[in-house]
Design a protein around this nucleic acid. Structure first.
Length: 564
RNA sequence: GGCCCCAUCGUCUAGCGGUUAGGACGUCAGGUUCUCAUCCUGAAAACGGGAGUUCGAUUCUCCCUGGGGUCACCA
């Protein structure tokens, strides 16, 4: 058997959906595990969808996951290596029109395809009628087929845009699927579908078949939603005299509630948050201007069918401090998931190696992946489990690796954070955060207090804060005032986590019955404004002596005279 | 609605005629800890229903039910 060639063939988009990522992953693993090739092809035959450079943003997502294509669009990876290219290009369908035209001409000449001039209105009416009669719609080609060459010439001369339809021949088609087994679609299920649109572009069905043939593809792994389409492709392959391909249709991935995972989930979540917060206008960005212009914002807020641009949505969510559901690979990256974890988890949705094994890397997947272990049932995407996997991976990292990867994430998503903190303090933060972080991002999200100026730090007035500061005898506030003196006695040069812990342990021994918690919590509130942070002595070390003492003073002043 | 596909804990799944139906996440109950989070112990939790086939069905067949996909000049 020759080495397999698989392909991932998305329509152009700025983002790679997790479902698409899983498909790409399986295509990659199948080919690479067998010494074959993994191709990437852009299905941009819909002129309504843009296909400029920006719309290929998902290439970086594939690369980030470690899925480099042997052939396809050219791309320069962050490490400088070049991906893509190849002898079967162009890899954009919009640049392959001549090939499709040639093949369509062959079909027409052989009487296997014909031009049709139905208007959209006629087609809509026919569909509506079928629907009203409770029957599935099938195109009736009798009218178009009855046209004489002269008729066609006349219609074309009138400027009537025509399409080309494939003459399917109304017969049963059996699909052999390596995952689902065989299935036979009865005669009449496939009608005379369009293969060339009025704008001259081929339809998906036609382009796929031609490209898979001309690019040497041997195995088609795609989502199950394409299953019925396979019948069309089989018919086309036969009419064109092409090779037979091996098919495998992958189970779909859904939301936990069974709905489709779509970008709309983000809009929905954000809209709910906006409504819950009673927001009447877009939050402002750093420049003081609204993140979304007022009109757009109101239209979006009031109309569930309107979607916000992806960037705008994340900006607004960020400003509001709400987390949006991750849908695209980029979302998971931004949320601080590790690519190897996402790869691992994605593979587990629809496949498993058996033997109760579920932690593995891409190389392992490549070596073990096979179609006979792909499940047939759709999966619901369980973010909680993904998060647990991410945690495990972070815990398993050595400290140096964690620091490096944390820094890389920060540089990309929280540059201001890195600027203010600087390298030595970032290292302390990393060491303090690693044991308690489920994602790279929460280190930044959870420690904003570390990068705000001392004089703008706000001490929250929550139950938990009041308990830490005002309850007990002596109160946390009392202890805080005294502890400050002990801290002030430590010179800057000795201001380290170990030294601070030693000092505070001594202090607690003398003033809090040895209960370090009595001292730690008021300190935490004083310097972070809240009751949650990494270990307090690490926090104090990161802030430094001056900042620590200043924040304690401000806290003391803010709560002076307050009672529980 | 027609056609096609599917069906094991809440979720992802293992199982390929005989198992105390396994693992993981989550959940619950304890424990450790300066908060949070880790971490440790333990527990509860599934073969959708009905007919067959068989000495024996989670496993094979059929029906029902339920779920999904698809019926475009989108891909």
């Amino acid at each position: 058997m020759t080495a397999p060639v698989t392909r991932f063939a998305p329509s152009p988009s700025g983002n790679l959906h997790v479902g698409g990522a899983r498909t790409a992953l399986f295509c990659y693993a199948y080919a690479k595990g067998r010494g074959g090739k993994f191709l990437l092809r852009i299905e941009d035959t819909d002129q309504k969808r843009s296909s400029d450079a920006a719309s290929l943003g998902f290439l970086k997502d594939l690369e980030w996951l470690g899925l480099r294509w042997d052939e396809g669009p050219e791309f320069e990876a962050p490490d400088g290596s070049r991906v893509g290219g190849g002898p079967h290009g162009p890899y954009f369908q919009s640049e392959r029109l001549a090939i499709y035209d040639r093949e369509i001409a062959r079909l027409i000449a052989a009487g296997k395809a014909y031009e049709a001039f139905d208007t959209a209105e006629e087609l809509d009416a026919a569909r509506a009628a079928a629907r009203a009669a409770g029957r599935p719609y099938r195109y009736d080609g009798s009218k178009a087929l009855a046209l004489s060459p002269a008729d066609r010439a006349r219609l074309a001369a009138e400027g009537r845009p025509g399409v080309v339809r494939f003459r399917s021949g109304e017969r049963a088609v059996t699909i052999h699927d390596e995952i689902l087994g065989d299935a036979t679609l009865p005669a009449g299920e496939v009608d005379d579908f369009v293969i060339r649109k009025a704008d001259g572009y081929p339809t998906y069905h036609f382009a796929v078949v031609v490209d898979d043939e001309t690019m040497g593809v041997t195995h088609v792994l795609r989502a199950q939603e394409h299953f019925n389409n396979t019948a069309k492709h089989l018919l086309l392959q036969e009419a064109l005299g092409y090779r037979r391909l091996t098919y495998g249709h992958l189970p779909l991935i859904f939301n936990p509630d069974g709905s489709k995972m779509s970008k709309r989930d983000k809009d929905r979540a954000l809209r709910e948050a906006v409504v819950a917060a009673g927001l009447e206008a877009s939050p402002a960005g750093d420049d003081g201007r609204p993140l979304v212009d007022h009109e757009t914002f109101l239209r979006w807020k009031g109309d569930k069918t309107v979607q916000l641009a992806a960037d705008a949505a994340t900006a607004v969510a960020d400003a509001m401090g709400v987390a949006l559901p991750e849908i695209n690979v980029e979302d998971f990256r931004r949320s601080g998931y590790l690519p190897e974890v996402l790869v691992n988890f994605l593979a587990l949705n629809g496949w498993s190696p058996g033997n109760d094994l579920e932690k593995f890397d891409l190389a392992f997947l490549c070596s073990r992946f096979d179609l006979d272990r792909v499940v047939k049932t759709p999966a619901k995407f369980d973010r909680a489990k993904l998060l647990a996997f991410n945690l495990d991976a972070i815990q398993a990292m050595d400290a140096g690796t964690f620091l490096r990867r944390l820094r890389a994430h920060g540089e990309r998503y929280h540059p201001e954070f890195l600027r203010t903190l600087g390298e030595p303090r970032l290292a302390i933060l990393a060491a303090a955060s690693q044991p308690r972080s489920k994602t790279l991002d929460e280190v930044f999200r959870g420690n904003r207090a570390l990068v705000v100026a001392d004089d703008v730090l706000v001490h929250e007035r929550s139950k938990a804060v009041e308990k830490a500061l005002l309850k007990g005898e002596p109160t946390g506030l009392d202890l805080l005032a005294k502890a400050k003196e002990s801290l002030a006695a430590i010179p800057s040069a000795e201001w380290s986590p170990a030294r601070l812990e030693q000092a505070m342990n001594e202090f607690a021994g003398g003033h809090a019955g040895g209960n370090i918690g009595k001292v730690a919590q008021p300190l935490r509130v004083a310097v972070t404004g809240g009751t949650v942070s990494p270990p307090i002595f690490d926090v104090l070390a990161i802030l430094g002596r001056d900042s620590t003492l200043r924040r304690i003073d401000r806290c003391l002043a803010a709560f002076a005279g307050a009672t529980a």
